[in-house]
């Protein structure tokens, strides 16, 4: 296709992506170097019949003027990245200088908002992805043995947790895990602990969030693996059996190698999606016990008093770096494949 035609065809797409993906990334990087203006305070003297008192308040007029002149706030360099709410360099140094052993270091670091979010994000990402893939693979194998009549309805039900709006799905489960909901109440009576609840137990919060993750991500692996199973060469399966392979050995040595490329693809997509885990934190109101990087950004943006654009942007940039690290192996492989093709 000639260059000119190509660019005419692709122009709207490129324009949309440059305007609303590339520019925002640039904007995030710029914003991350600024902090919001400090409040301009003025002192006024209030006099009433009982005497005069001095009162300090925020000068809204001066603030508005300042914001109009410099909407980004004041330049702060890398201060946003290094402060307590992000990489917390000073605090980490202090923790290492003064602590009571390894456990203490870990728990102190975990109390810093950024590391708390990072640890949950990584745990969620690297536990949910393999578990959901294993679940999906098991469902795919099982559904594949069903008679045709039952396959349709089973597939229908199986893709519901995936298709559901993440916020809605997490709310539905959160209500069931509520202490007065069906699962929450059952858990309390099973463990004999009447105070057990998501709010009170960080461990339970983490487990329930991971369960939600596997529940909602499993179906994607299922669908992809199920489709992959339809393309397993039957001759290979038959000849393996003739050679005396057991059912398990067929799965292990024929089916799994056949599905391996699909599994790489699924793992990649799922890692990318799970790294931005966000809605479940809101849906389960889990922020006291578990937060994620995306949630930190969200929290800064819906700030109670003022929106902390600089802080949100710094977290965003760190998150983007995280995504790029996750993507690096794929990008390298694609690059190598492309070069081989070109040669």
């Amino acid at each position: 296709m000639p260059h000119r035609t190509f660019f005419v065809f692709i122009f709207p797409s490129i324009l949309a992506m440059v305007l609303f993906i590339t520019l925002p990334i640039v904007s995030v990087v710029v914003q991350s170097l600024f902090v919001q203006h400090e409040a301009v305070l003025i002192t006024v003297e209030n006099c009433d019949p009982f005497g005069c008192s001095e009162q300090t308040r925020i000068d809204t007029e001066a603030m508005a003027k300042l914001e109009a002149e410099q909407p980004l706030g004041q330049f702060a360099g890398f201060a946003n990245y290094l402060n307590r709410n992000h990489l917390a360099v000073d605090e980490i140094g202090a923790i290492f200088a003064d602590n009571q052993g390894l456990g203490d270091i870990v728990s102190q670091i975990f109390n810093l908002p950024f590391y708390k979010a990072l640890s949950f994000t990584l745990v969620y990402c690297f536990l949910v992805t393999p578990l959901a893939m294993a679940l999906g693979f098991a469902i795919a194998l099982a559904v594949n043995t069903l008679p045709a009549l039952l396959k349709g309805p089973t597939i229908f039900v199986s893709i519901l947790p995936m298709i559901i709006t993440p916020l809605v799905g997490s709310l539905i489960l959160a209500w069931m895990f509520n202490p007065s909901g069906i699962l929450g109440a059952t858990l309390q009576s099973l463990t004999g602990d009447p105070t057990l609840s998501l709010r009170a137990s960080p461990a339970l919060t983490w487990i329930v969030l991971l369960v939600y993750g596997v529940w909602t991500n499993g179906p994607f692996s299922f669908v992809v693996f199920y489709a992959g199973l339809q393309t397993v060469p039957q001759d290979t399966v038959e000849s393996a059996k003739i050679d005396g392979a057991s059912r398990w050995e067929v799965i292990r040595h024929v089916i799994i190698p056949h599905l391996a490329p699909l599994a790489t693809f699924v793992a990649l997509v799922q890692l990318m999606d799970n790294f931005r885990v966000f809605e479940p934190i809101v849906g389960f109101s889990a922020e006291a016990n578990a937060t994620s990087l995306s949630w930190l950004v969200f929290n800064d943006l819906v700030g109670q008093d003022a929106q902390l654009f600089g802080s949100a942007a710094a977290t965003s940039v760190i998150t983007i770096v995280g995504v790029l690290i996750l993507l690096a192996p794929v990008l390298r492989r694609t690059w190598r494949e492309f070069n081989q093709k070109a040669v």
Binding site: P24, V28, A313, L324
Partner: peptide
């Protein structure tokens, strides 16, 4: 496009708000 696909939406949102 593959890289853009991986960007968490909320990080892009924090870039949109101020502009």
């Amino acid at each position: 496009a593959l890289i853009f696909r991986a960007m968490p939406h909320i990080t892009l949102v924090s870039g949109y708000m101020l502009p």
